[in-house]
């Protein structure tokens, strides 16, 4: 899978001097791969037709990255995100989270995996309307039998504070603004201490200022906790905040990017079908 271009891009990053700050520091050590997408394709059946959403996608996502999956609408971003998030299964190919092959798991096993490993932030419909903010944040923890009520409460209050919504704990979603709702969703995503947080167009329904605030909050959390964040987006601001990018077009990866200082360093993916497996194919 890796082209010589990609390998040279990887070499560039790894040889960056320390003064490039956090990015450089983290790039010095080979990163642990959290998610591996191997030759994944996804097709939908729409009435009588088979719609190809993703074709032969190969991707590695490292631990701790702040990654954007970019592309126009219809490019397959949400589909890829859904597959990584185990709320959908690929038509062909495999996906590994940690070292577990999730494409062959049963729905119940996937549910369990989602509960403990993955945090979701959707574009809309994030929260359960009949629960207050703190109850919404607590909701995923209810499945964790090992936590006592006190421990749950502690986590809930902590993350509400992290997102700055402690005062609004008792409010219901319909009493919160769009930005506040997203922040509750972030808190909820964090509360299970997930390995990876997936956000589908998180700023799409927010105004500029709020969107920016949300992004900065997530970036801060990413830096402080090392939680991996993966977004799907077509918003340039989101892409600007990311340190990794994957560009999709018509269901295929057209390029991979790594942020070096304020610029992107791209690696081109071979457009022709590749059958060779990759070891490290990201730049």
């Amino acid at each position: 899978m890796a082209s010589s271009d990609e390998r040279s891009a990887a070499n560039i990053v790894q040889s960056l001097p320390r003064r490039y700050g956090a990015i450089g520091a983290r790039s010095r050590h080979p990163k642990q791969v959290l998610v591996r997408v191997e030759n994944v394709s996804k097709q939908y059946r729409l009435d009588d037709q088979l719609v190809p959403a993703l074709s032969s996608v190969n991707l590695n996502i490292e631990k701790g990255v702040f990654m954007a999956i970019a592309g126009p609408s219809g490019s397959g971003k949400s589909t890829l995100l859904n597959l990584i998030g185990c709320i959908d299964t690929p038509t062909s190919g495999r996906i590994f989270i940690g070292d577990q092959d999730v494409s062959s798991k049963s729905p119940d096993q996937l549910a369990s995996l989602r509960a403990r490993t993955i945090g979701f932030i959707f574009q809309t419909f994030n929260l359960l309307p009949v629960l207050s903010a703190e109850e919404n944040v607590e909701y995923p923890l209810l499945q964790f039998k090992e936590l006592s009520v006190a421990q749950r409460q502690q986590r809930v209050q902590h993350y509400l504070e992290v997102v700055g919504l402690s005062e609004y704990a008792r409010h219901r979603p319909n009493q919160l603004s769009g930005g506040q709702r997203q922040r509750v969703a972030i808190a909820r995503a964090l509360v299970v201490h997930p390995k990876i947080i997936l956000a589908d167009e998180p700023t799409a329904n927010l105004d500029h200022k709020t969107g920016g605030r949300i992004l900065r909050l997530m970036r801060r959390i990413n830096r402080q906790t090392g939680t991996t964040f993966v977004f799907s987006t077509h918003d340039q601001r989101v892409i600007d905040m990311a340190i990794r990018r994957v560009d999709l077009e018509d269901g295929e990866i057209v390029r991979l990017g790594v942020r070096v200082a304020k610029e992107w360093v791209y690696a081109m993916e071979r457009v022709i079908d590749s059958t060779a497996d990759s070891e490290e194919d990201d730049a």
Partner: peptide, 11 residues
């Protein structure tokens, strides 16, 4: 709504 619950890990 029920979809969200399942995304969060409910069976």
């Amino acid at each position: 709504e029920f979809g969200i619950m399942r995304a969060l890990g409910r069976t």
